[in-house]
Structure formats: C-alpha cells, structure tokens
Nucleic acid binder design. Structure first.
Lengths: 340, 340
DNA sequence: CTGAAAGCGCTTACAG
DNA sequence: CTGAAAGCGCTTACAG
C-alpha cells in the first residue's frame, strides 16, 4: 500500500534495480522484451520515480527558477511565455518573488546552492541576489544564471544578460517630446539611486541637455500607480507646471493620468504623458498611452536560450550581453504643447 | 574544494555526523560547548546542508506550491502577500503557472507526488489539477491542498477553499444597475461553461429575472482586455445597444471602455460599465471603474491559514469552505441611463 | 544486455 | 549528551 519504489518494480518484473533504472533513463540500452515487461509492471502498480531521490542522487534537478520582483506585474506574462517556449518540456519553470526574500534570503540561497534548481533566470534588479553564490569552484561548477529585462549591476556584469538599451530608449522618447515642442519635461522616476531607472534617467538627462534644456527635473518616488498619483499631486497642483511628464514605467503614467483627470487637466492638450514598458494597460488607457515598448516575449526567449546554452556547454564562459530593440509607441497621450 | 558535507564538519569538529545533524535540527539536545564548536566549524568552512539530501531523507520539503493561472495578473500580488504573511519563514513559496502545464502536466504531478512540496495552494480554477493525485492511501497521507480565490469544481468540493460568494456578488452588482434604472444589461463573460464565471453568470441571471427582465443577454468571450474589446465591438456597433455592460472581470471592462472611447460612446452617460475584482487598474481608469472588490489579501491569509492547519493536523479532515465578504465599489463608470 | 555493489548526504532510532 | 549503524530510493561505473 506504500508508495511503490524501484525495488518492487524490479522484483515484480524479475529484474534488477539497475535494469529498471535503465528502462527509465536509457531505454535504448535495454532489451525490448525486458523493457516491455518492466513497463507493464510500472503501469500496473502505478510506479513513479521519486523525484526527491532522483535529484539527490544526480545532484541536480530539472527545474529552472525564474525570479521576479512582483508576481502581479503584467509584463511578466509574455516573458514567461517566451521562456517556456524555448525551454520546452525539458525543464520545469518555477517562480519566486524577490521581494519575499528581502529578509528571508537564506532559503532562496539554499535552494540555489543545494541545486534544487539547475539554472536561474533573474528578471529583477540584482541587489537581492548575492553574487558570491554563483562563484563556483574546482569541483562545483557555477550555477548558470542569466539576467533578463532589467539592467545589470556592476557586481554581476560578467553574467549573460538580455535587455534593451534603456539609456537610448529614454533618450529617444525624450527627444520625441522635445521634437514636438516640449521644453518643460519632468521625468517621474522610481526610487533614487535604483539601478532599474538609472539608465532611463541618464537617457532623459542627456537628451534634455543636448537640446539645451539644462534645468533638469527628475522626481523620485515609487514605480507604481500610487507613485504616479503622488508625483502628479505634487507636480500638477503648482502654478507652473511642466508641459510633459515622462514616466519611468506605465504604472506611474497611469497614476499620473488619473490624477490629471481628477484635476481637470486634459491629456494631451494640457499635459503630455509618456510611459515606459507598453504593458497591456497602456493601449486601453484613456487616452491611450504613448510609451516605449520592450520586446517582452523576445526577452524571455533570449534569456532562456542563453540559459539553455550554458546548461549544454558547462565549460564555456559566455558573458553575452544581448541588447534587444526597443520601440517608441506614440498613441494619444502625447501631443504638441498648447502655446508652442 | 568540493562542497563541504556533514562528514567534513564532523571530522573537523571531532564529533560524529549524528551530532552535527543534531546541532542543525535540534540544538537544544546538544551540549553547549559541543554546539559552539560545531557551529564554529560550520561557519569557517561555509557548510550548508544539502537540501536535496535533507528533503529526500525526510521524505518532504519545506516548500509550498502556489498555482496561479497567469503570473501577470495583478490580483495575485496581494494574495501572495497574504499567503506569505501567514506562512512566515517556516515555508518557502514557489509558484507555477497552471496554463503552462496544460500539456505538460506530468511534471507538475511528479512534483506533487514526489513531495518536493509539502502543500499546495491552488489559485486557479481546478480543471488543470487532477484530483486523483491527492487521494492518498494508508501509508501515504494526502497532500494538503487548499483552493483560493476561484470557485471549486464538483470534483474537488471536499477540499478546503476560500472565496467570495460569486453568485451573490454578481447578484448585488446587477441589482445595483437595475436599481439605478437599467433594464438592457448585457453580461460580458468568459468562456462558455467556465467554472470561474458560472456563478457570476447565474447571479446576474437571477437578479435580472427577479426584476422582470427575462430577456437575458450573456456574451461569452475571453477574460481579458482583448476579450472586452472584441465584445464591445460586437455590442456597441449595433443600432440598439444595451445601456449597461456588466463585465466578468476588470480587464474585460477596461477593454470595453477603451472601445467605447474609440467609438465616441460616453461612459457613463451613454453606457454604464461595471467590472469585477477591483484590480489596481480599476481605480485609475478613466472614468474610474465601478466594480466588485474581492478581499484579496484576506483570501491569501485565509488559504494559508487553512493550509497551515492541515499541515499541523495531518489527521483531521477539515473541508472548510470559507466565504469571504465582497464589496460593491461604485465609482464613475456607472450612472442612471439617459432616458430613464 | 544485465546484475551486484557502492554510494549520494543526510536523519533517526538504538545503545550507551 | 553522544556515537555507530542502518537506510531513504535511486544511479552508475564495473564486471560479466
């Protein structure tokens, strides 16, 4: 009545454990008749290999861990689709939220070190992740890690990564706003000093400077709807307002637009708003949000491909950084400023 | 140079493996001086127990698996916060997407059966999950499973679950629309026959019937922005339109509103739109979306508490179904119909 | 193509 | 409070 093991299968089939194991893992090396007999027994008693034992014995699992900051962010849907499309049925994907490990952390590390996972895809800015862990040694190959979507901290610069050129993307978007006549543009960003937004801030700043707008306005806050609302309350209730707000992500932009609507400020007539990410909520916003699109599915595919490569070529040191193309999406939330 | 094991720690500390193991798992049963010595060695050589071995030996892990349909859905953020708040540091949470297991499935099952996880929280409608797996037997206790957020199929009716009363919630929302004067209301739903929306459809239908509106209009589609857009294109381009659309979730409602805006149909003046879920995007929509709120964080907390209870009381058969309160949130997307 | 045997790293009664 | 020993279920050289 207890869960059947390889031993019972062997006994019932009249073969050794080894043979059963071979039937499972390298059936091509087993006599056809033996194989059939063993498989019949497996079927009959409903045997399933104990993964825990298997992983332990092999010293590794077939699980790829994907770390995201926050499960509810819609941008991850497509990325995961891409990842799974590439990984196929060879590996299972499990997810963890990095914010959950802020204090915990230890478990997360144990999981990696203990090789319950065979590789890691980090879709979150890196601070959470202790680079020492992937060091590896003579006997212990380093655990393959690929960073996707977000920029890479200096610590982890030697890891393969896949992302857009955030500096250039922000530069392009800012330049677009300047080109249509805006001069008073505020960049509504995330936390000060955060890696995620640093490149975007610099891109904004450089574009502004190049256009002769030396009075840089960057507002730090939170990369969320709430953050956008807070920023809007500060920026839009002043006597002199910027004519355009370039937001570090779409959630901020959505928060900004909702406050603008509350205050009776018309977008884009009185205020242009530009987002970043092109999440599913950008296109259906009212007005539809102009934004910078990241090729999310491709980010997923490419990170997974890099991981696969690392998995299949354990020796190679491939610090490949892939820069994927971004795309400016102009919808209805941006327009020439009124008085220009 | 190889990864240190318990054996090396024992040798270096001059004790047996057993003692090292005890230092790790039941330090209160170890002499203070021994403990100190062993801990020092552990520290020095950077020993970390091999989780794979530990789990295998113990026959279980300390991981709780949370299954969601789609990682990108914002509703899961709060639920997971609630789950983790309750589970604390005693368990790690990993996530899997049920949609990914549509074909795969086998791996998912293996993971459960192999007890790589100690319990499961299902936040997705149940079809994906094969109830036979949790059967258990004399020697094998059933794996604790708690269903949260979504309604439970008949198959799994004996499992503990936590959700709102979807029938009543939809009934309340519909009644509200009727009370403010609407008679031509269409329910924009998900897939036909889907468990997720069945109760909401019935709640809508019952409220309509009770109000004497016998001509029921339910449109089936997809529970997404795209689905809402498609539905709106069908419903709003006709000569005779409903005066209100009650959508099975907020994403649909957002899709509907965006198409309405495109078509120049004013919400709520020409058309009332009601959502369901109260995701973070509802409040900032333009106009802000009236909807039905689910107590998401509480759903997470309660499912986790039920799981914890099941974990701590393996014998007890507690098929507790918890019905949590919903809340009607009236914002600006609903109003009296024009001609009433 | 198959089997006997060792062993992965840990835990757990059982003695002492 | 501590140690010697068995064993969890599987895989993997090594013989044959």
């Amino acid at each position: 009545m207890a869960k059947p093991t390889i031993v019972q299968v062997a006994r019932l089939a009249g073969v050794s454990n080894s043979t059963v194991s071979r039937c499972l893992n390298q059936p091509e090396n087993v006599d056809r008749k033996t194989l059939a007999r063993v498989r019949k027994v497996i079927e009959e008693i409903g045997y399933r290999p104990n993964l825990l034992a298997q992983n332990f014995r092999r010293g590794q699992s077939d699980i790829v861990l994907v770390v995201v900051h926050n499960v509810g962010a819609s941008i991850f849907s497509d990325i995961l689709d891409g990842i799974r499309a590439v990984l196929g049925s060879r590996f299972s994907v499990i997810l963890m939220e990095s914010r959950a490990e802020a204090q915990g952390h230890a478990r997360f590390i144990d999981l990696l070190v203990a090789k319950q996972v065979v590789g890691v895809i980090l879709l979150c800015a890196s601070p959470t992740f202790d680079p020492r862990l992937i060091g590896g040694s003579d006997h212990q190959p380093r655990l393959p890690v690929v960073i996707g979507l977000e920029p890479v901290s200096a610590d982890l610069a030697d890891l393969p990564s896949v992302h857009i050129d955030n500096h250039r993307a922000a530069h392009d978007a800012t330049t677009y706003l300047i080109d249509i006549g805006h001069r008073e543009i505020t960049f509504v960003s995330g936390e000060k000093g955060s890696l995620i937004t640093a490149d975007r801030e610099r891109g904004f700043a450089d574009a502004m400077t190049q256009a002769g707008c030396t009075d840089l306005a960057i507002l730090h806050g939170d990369l969320s709807i709430q953050g956008g609302m807070a920023a809007a309350h500060r920026l839009l209730t002043r006597a002199i307002r910027p004519t355009a707000l370039f937001c570090a992500n779409d959630d901020i932009a959505l928060g900004v637009m909702s406050v603008a609507a509350q205050l009776g400020i018309a977008v884009p007539d009185d205020l242009s708003v530009m987002g970043f990410d092109d999440t599913v909520y950008a296109a259906t916003a009212n007005p539809p949000l102009s934004t910078v699109a990241q090729p999310t599915r491709e980010v997923g595919e490419r990170t997974a491909k890099q991981l696969l490569h690392a998995l299949d070529h354990p020796g190679e040191e491939a610090h490949l950084t892939e820069i994927l193309p971004h795309r400016l999406i102009i919808r209805k939330s941006t327009a020439r400023p009124r008085q220009s």
